[in-house]
Nucleic acid binder design. Structure first.
Length: 560
DNA sequence: CTAGGGTTAG
């Protein structure tokens, strides 16, 4: 029998660890593993297995004889830290690091690297830098892997490429050479920022440094071409990768296929799939999920479901993501009923069903104004042992609002049945705005901030919209100005211009546009779009005042 | 210990 044939056993073994084998001081297992998902628990189980194999001759005998606690090694600590990092719990990672320190463990570079990486992924950049400095001041010399985490932070997250390059130079000063991983990380960041030309510059530098390129180096570039709409270039790069001695693999083709979906080149995808074997790669579940998602978003639900057959024929089984794509597809073509049915059948078919699948169907039901069905599904999922998350609750709040039960929705939030977030509050505010209850909107806006929830651009859109509807333009402008604390958002500006024009405030509109341009912000197309929409709605384009429209449009062109 | 791929809410 394989060690962990089922998750129940994995959970059981965790309890065993808790009781006998793994008494790391200060580590509250019961609390910690509650937050972990099944796959993380399985990972934990591996750690347990490792322990058992080293401490006991047979897996179970140790329980019978009553295993004695033994001290873990930094390596094992690191495995645990990685599990917490993967679960998105950097605080637990830091706590373990602290424990090691206090138990006079010799902290090594990999342990620090794991901790720094978990902070970077959680976007806690200042802390990541602090831990890195801490590592250096404790006398440890960071290796290429540790520095690569910093490269990732500066390149992929902060888009501070000069700093990323400084880290690479620093690696060289330490007497190491940046490897393919370090360079590929820099390339990935540049590509995400749309700076493909510079990414190719790095590629050339790698060739100059005789650093071997691999698939991971090229794939981000293919992706960047796809998202720029340069699909031909993407295809050409994939074809030419072979000549560079680096065959594109499933991931590369998945990226390309996603790009082809975006531009609707579905026949090309069919061809690529047909030729896959001869080209030396195998489509996987993700390949089909991407393709099906593309077909669904293109409105071709039937063809998407045909792919389901195709993948099953190849022995590929849909997972919860695949299922979700299909559920979402059904919800968007007015077949929520079928989505509900499919969700029910998935459990019979033993497909993986998770909270996201329930959220998708509940959201579909919410849009079809079936609030009782939403609540029924909430009950169903909880009965099945699937925990609702913040998305689930927000959908429930939304469906209460749609049913006109705004006060009930507010009550649920206030009762703290769950922790509301900015989306939850914004939905409720939106609905209070639509029924004209300005006082309640303002109250909620203040309340969410007391709760430590920061309003975002959508929230400000609601505020601006709400005050414009009531003719309180100066208040709307005040909220627009507050939104600037988090940087200029063209969407909020667009909403304000829309409201101002609908209210006939042409002078204010002009002043606003002039001011935006004067501050050096881009007059985004969404501002133009909402301006033109507002003019048409207002009827300016039909009457004598068309010259005002022309005047404003001329002005705008000059701003450009 | 470090790099590339798919899904859900306003």
């Amino acid at each position: 029998m394989p060690w962990f044939s089922n998750l129940l056993f994995a959970r059981l073994s965790l309890r065993i660890v808790h009781l006998f084998v793994f008494p790391i001081q200060g580590l509250c297992w019961r609390r910690s593993y509650c937050h972990l998902h099944d796959d993380q628990i399985t990972k934990f189980a591996e750690v347990v297995k490792h322990f058992f194999q080293r401490s006991c001759s047979s897996s179970f005998s140790c329980l019978e004889i009553g295993a004695r606690p033994r001290h873990p090694h930094p390596f094992e600590y690191n495995k645990l830290m990685k599990a917490f990092a993967r679960a998105g719990q950097p605080d637990d990672v830091l706590r373990l690091l602290d424990e090691m320190r206090q138990s006079n463990f010799e902290l090594d570079v990999p342990c620090y690297t794991t901790a720094i990486d978990s902070l970077v992924v959680a976007r806690r950049f200042e802390e990541a830098e602090a831990v890195f400095k801490d590592m250096v001041s404790s006398g440890l010399t960071p290796d290429v892997a540790a520095c690569t985490v910093l490269v990732k932070m500066y390149s992929c997250y902060l888009k501070q490429f000069d700093k990323a390059c400084l880290v690479l130079q620093w690696i060289m000063r330490l007497g190491c050479k940046p490897d393919v991983v370090a360079y590929s990380t820099l390339i990935a960041g540049l590509c995400q920022a749309g700076r493909v030309r510079e990414a190719i510059g790095v590629l050339k530098l790698m060739l100059h440094e005789q650093c071997h390129l691999n698939v991971q180096t090229y794939t981000p570039i293919v992706r960047a071409y796809c998202s720029n709409g340069r699909i031909i270039k993407a295809k050409r790069l994939v074809d030419s990768m072979r000549n560079f001695g680096c065959s594109p693999n499933t991931v590369t083709y998945n990226v390309l296929i996603e790009g082809l979906c975006k531009v609707g080149y579905f026949s090309d995808i069919e061809k690529i799939l047909e030729e896959s074997t001869s080209m030396g790669w195998m489509p996987d579940v993700i390949t089909y999920s991407i393709y099906m998602n593309g077909l669904c978003k293109n409105g071709d639900a039937n063809k998407a479901f045909e792919q389901l057959e195709a993948m099953l024929e190849k022995g590929l089984y849909p997972n919860s993501v695949t299922l979700n794509i299909l559920l979402d597809c059904l919800c968007h073509c007015s077949k929520v009923w079928e989505a509900e049915l499919l969700l029910g059948r998935s459990l019979e078919l033993e497909w993986d069903v998770n909270v996201v699948n329930y959220n998708t169907v509940m959201s579909g039901l919410c849009k079809s104004e079936k609030s009782s069905a939403v609540l029924k599904l909430l009950g169903d999922m909880m009965k099945k042992g699937i925990d609702p998350n913040i998305w689930t609750f927000t959908i429930v709040i939304h469906s209460l609002c749609r049913a006109g039960k705004l006060w009930e929705a507010k009550f649920v939030i206030e009762r703290r049945v769950f922790v509301a977030n900015v989306v939850t509050y914004t939905i409720l505010m939106q609905y209070f705005c639509w029924v004209g209850n300005l006082g309640e909107v303002q109250l909620l806006f203040a309340k969410m901030q007391v709760e430590g929830i920061h309003p975002n651009a959508v929230t400000y859109n609601v505020m601006v919209d709400c005050f414009c509807r009531q003719g309180k333009y100066s208040d709307a402008i005040v909220y627009f100005v507050s939104s600037l604390d988090d940087g200029f958002s063209p969407k909020v500006a667009a909403r304000l211009t829309y409201g101002l024009i609908r209210g006939g405030k042409l002078c204010d509109t002009l002043n606003l546009l002039e001011w935006i341009a004067g501050e050096g912000w881009v007059l985004d197309f969404c501002i133009f779009h909402s301006l033109i929409k507002a003019f048409c709605r207002k009827g300016y384009c039909l009457g004598m005042e068309i010259h005002v429209v022309c005047f404003i449009l001329d002005k705008m062109l000059r701003f450009k």
